[in-house]
């Protein structure tokens, strides 16, 4: 959905200053991140989300109600002390459903980003390090993948493979590969000629070893920024597919899917629409703010601004 965040990251990222002392880079980054209130609040929010996802998975008893249990005598209850976010068209507790929905959204975000990051790093490293024909071949393939909007590719996948959140993950990860590949390739091109890389070559290190030991650690920070922002767009894309009714199978709880169903009840029960929407927006916002904070922390130039 947003190839631009990558451009933005590319433009403002300049990790050159830190290249010589990678260890101090992390400390300096953390110090500077700590000063960014918005990023710290977001980080705390994300940690809470992760805790919710993990705890509700292991101890579903902590939820006030069974998120899947319907009660036809208690449909559309207005939020109160017992049902904090009200109940939906089948009398299910919206609060509990949003809580378990956290797991779906977070895992989609994390898995999609993990897959695309891994593949992106591999392709980007190969392209950047080997250069020449390999480079143009890989980058041409990346161009192809970039030219199909992610939602559309996801939709095409679902048309072919059937509907489901797992296909959404495949599609979302595939379309984000080029973003990582481009970052890694760019960074590698700029550090390839550095003394210590050249030195490693002279000593006779293998290519793979050089990439992993000497080059990747230097690219890691930019990758982390991109990944944080990537999670937010993956969550947004997945919720969009859920909204279109292409996501989870009922009665599973997924934020986008809940929102899609709630469209019919905007008058009688606006809360069925408000809370899932807030859940998506706040989560995405938190990852965006954290990503921005990380980027600023890594890039002293943008911090000045």
């Amino acid at each position: 959905m947003d190839k631009t965040q990558d451009t933005a990251a590319e433009i403002s990222l300049s990790t050159q200053e830190f290249l010589e002392k990678p260890e101090s880079q992390w400390k300096s980054m953390w110090d500077s991140l700590k000063k960014n209130k918005a990023a710290m609040v977001s980080l705390a929010f994300i940690i809470i989300l992760v805790l919710i996802a993990v705890i509700t998975a292991i101890f579903p008893q902590v939820l006030p109600h069974d998120p899947y249990e319907q009660n036809m005598t208690k449909t559309f209850l207005f939020p109160d002390g017992r049902y904090w976010f009200g109940t939906d068209q089948l009398g299910r507790d919206i609060f509990s459903r949003i809580m378990v929905g956290t797991r779906v959204s977070l895992s989609v975000g994390v898995i999609a980003v993990a897959v695309s990051m891994t593949l992106g790093v591999v392709f980007g490293s190969l392209a950047g390090y080997l250069g020449g024909k390999v480079d143009s071949f890989i980058m041409r393939i990346m161009d192809i993948m970039l030219s199909i909007p992610s939602i559309l590719l996801a939709i095409a996948f679902m048309a072919a493979l059937g509907q489901g959140i797992d296909k959404a993950v495949i599609a979302i990860s595939l379309v984000s590969i080029p973003e990582y590949a481009r970052i890694v390739r760019g960074e590698i091109l700029s550090v390839k000629e550095n003394d210590y890389v050249q030195a490693a070559k002279v000593i006779g290190d293998k290519d793979g070893r050089i990439i992993f030991r000497h080059i990747l650690p230097n690219v890691l920070s930019s990758i982390i920024v991109r990944a944080t922002l990537g999670i937010s767009s993956a969550i947004l894309d997945a919720s969009a597919l859920g909204f279109l009714g292409l996501g989870v199978q009922p009665p599973a709880a997924e934020w986008g899917d809940m929102l899609g169903r709630a469209r019919n009840y905007i008058f009688q029960a606006p809360y069925t629409l408000i809370f899932p929407g807030l859940a998506i927006s706040l989560t995405v916002l938190a990852f965006n703010l954290l990503g921005d904070g990380l980027r600023d922390a890594l890039d002293p130039k943008s911090r000045q601004n």
């Binding site: 899947y68 249990e69 319907q70 036809m72 068209q89 089948l90 199978q249 009922p250 009665p251 169903r261 019919n264």
Partner: peptide, 24 residues
């Protein structure tokens, strides 16, 4: 008037109570 999906999900809920999964 509520459409087939809500009706199907309601029945899915009742069947869940007796241990049957409905794929809608």
């Amino acid at each position: 008037s509520v459409g087939g999906q809500v009706l199907a999900e309601a029945i899915q809920g009742y069947l869940k109570d007796v241990g049957v999964t409905c794929n809608i």
